[in-house]
Write a protein that binds this DNA or RNA. Structure first.
Lengths: 225, 225
DNA sequence: ACAAAAGTGTTGAGAGTACACCCATGC
DNA sequence: GCATGGGTGTACTCTCAACACTTTTGT
C-alpha cells in the first residue's frame, strides 16, 4: 500500500492569537483580499509544508503575523468538515497563542489587505468556520484559566495583583472578589514578589512575577470520588 | 493561490478503542502484517477520504474493526511530527472511543494479520508513535472520568453501583471508598433506579441506568477565584 | 485634606475524607 | 447458619463565598 494511492486533503494550521489590550481580550485577524470570503476576516493560517511539524507551521504563522517567538502555543482542535473550504478539501489544525500586550507588532501578511486586533466580544464577519474556531478557543482559554496558570502568559513579566485580577476578569467576563482572589493566588504559591513597587495614582502596588518552578495545575473537583 | 500549488501531507485517523473486560481496561490493537513496523501492534486507523469528515473516517474505522455504531467518540489530538511515519509525511488525527463490554465483536481488518484486546496496563511493542497516542488517551480518559460522566459509556445500559464503582477503580487505577462513592454519585443526580434487581451471590443489588437528561459536568475547582 | 488605588480577616455553609457494621439472599 | 456481596451514617477538616474598612501615596 503506497501513500500515493490516495487523493489527499490539504492541511493548514490556523492560530488564534489572544492578547489583552485596552482592558479587553482581543484576537488578531486578517482581512482576506481574495475569494473565497473576500473582505471577510480570518485567523492567521496557512498550509503545512511537508518538511515541518504542525507546531512549527503554527509558530511560523505566528511569527509572520506578529514577529513574536517563545510564546504560549497550544493545539486546540482539528476541524475537518468536508465543505468547510469551498475551494476543496482542507483540514485545519487550530492552535491558540497567548501573547503579552507589550510584544505586539502586527504585520501585513502576504495574503492580507489588513491585519488588526478585534475584541473577542465584538467580532466582524468571519470567513470559513472561523467563528466556531474562535468560540471554541475562548471556551478553552476560560477553562484553562480556571485550573492552570496560563493567565500569566497574557501579562508582562512583572505585574501587580490588581493587574492580574483585571486580566482574569476580562477573560472570564465576570467580576472577582479582591480579597478572595489575593488569598487564593498567594496560597497557590505560583507568584513571588519582585521587591519593587509600581507607583501611580494612589498607594504604590507591590510587583510580582510568575515563579517558573511553580506547579500550576490544580486537581479538578471530581464528579465521582 | 490554488490548493494544488502545495505538496500535501497524507491524513489518517487513528482510533483508540477502550472497553472494560476481565476486570481490566483494554484497547483494541491490530498486528501489522506489512512494513514498516511489521509484526508490531497499532491502533485501528486509516486514510481520510476526501469526501468524508474526520469524524466520519474515525467512525468508519471503528465500525470496520468492531462492528459497533453509536458509541462515544471524541477527538483526542492531532499528531504531526515530520518523521512519525517512515514512508512519508503522515498527519494523524487521533480519536478515542468507549464501548460497553458486551458489544465486542472484533473483526480482522484488511491490513491486519490479527486483531485483539490488550490491557492498557500491559501493552505489546507499538508501531509509529502509538505509545504516545495511547498514553495520552489514558490520561484524557482518566481526566474526563473525574469531572464528567463518560464512565457510563463503558458500562451496559443497566448496572449496579458496585459495577459502576469497579469500572471507576479500573480506569483510575485506585481504590475508592464505597460509602463516599455512593453518596457522591447519587447526589450528583446522574443515575436513576430501574426498579429491578440483579441477583447472584449475596444480597441482590439495585439496578441503575444513566439519566440521559442529566447535567454531567461539574465545575472544576478553580486555581484562581 | 482629599482622591485614588492597595491592602487586609472573619464567619458560615457545603464538600471531602476517613471509618465499621448490619442486611438480604442462595446454598 | 453461614458465606457473599449490598447497603448505610457520623464526625472532622478544609475550601469556598460573602462582606467593609484602613493604609499609603500624589496632588
Amino acid at each position: 500500500m503506497a501513500l500515493s494511492d490516495y487523493e489527499r486533503p490539504s492541511v493548514t494550521t490556523d492560530v488564534v492569537i489572544f492578547t489583552l489590550q485596552d482592558e479587553d481580550l482581543q484576537v488578531l485577524l486578517i482581512r482576506r483580499k481574495h475569494p473565497p470570503f473576500e473582505g471577510m476576516w480570518a485567523t492567521p493560517g496557512g498550509f503545512v509544508n511537508v518538511d515541518e511539524s504542525l507546531e512549527e507551521a503554527a509558530l511560523r504563522e505566528l511569527e509572520e503575523e506578529t514577529g513574536v517567538r517563545d510564546v504560549y502555543l497550544e493545539q486546540l482542535y482539528t476541524f475537518g468538515a468536508v465543505d468547510r473550504d469551498p475551494r476543496g478539501r482542507v483540514i485545519t489544525v487550530a492552535y491558540f497563542a497567548l501573547i503579552p500586550a507589550p510584544d505586539i507588532d502586527p504585520r501585513a501578511g502576504s495574503d492580507a489587505a489588513e491585519t488588526r486586533w478585534w475584541s473577542i466580544y465584538d467580532l466582524p464577519p468571519l470567513a470559513f468556520d472561523h467563528d466556531a474556531i474562535l468560540s471554541y478557543a475562548l471556551e478553552r482559554l476560560r477553562y484553562k484559566l480556571e485550573y492552570s496558570a496560563v493567565g500569566f502568559e497574557l501579562l508582562p513579566e512583572t505585574f501587580t495583583l490588581s493587574e492580574l485580577q483585571a486580566a482574569y476578569e476580562i477573560v472570564l467576563g465576570e467580576a472577582l472578589d479582591k480579597r478572595n482572589f489575593r488569598r487564593k493566588i498567594l496560597r497557590a504559591d505560583v507568584i513571588e514578589e519582585t521587591g519593587d513597587y509600581r507607583t501611580g495614582e494612589g498607594r504604590p502596588a507591590r510587583l510580582y512575577r510568575f515563579r517558573d518552578d511553580a506547579v500550576a495545575e490544580v486537581k479538578a473537583r471530581r464528579l465521582f470520588p
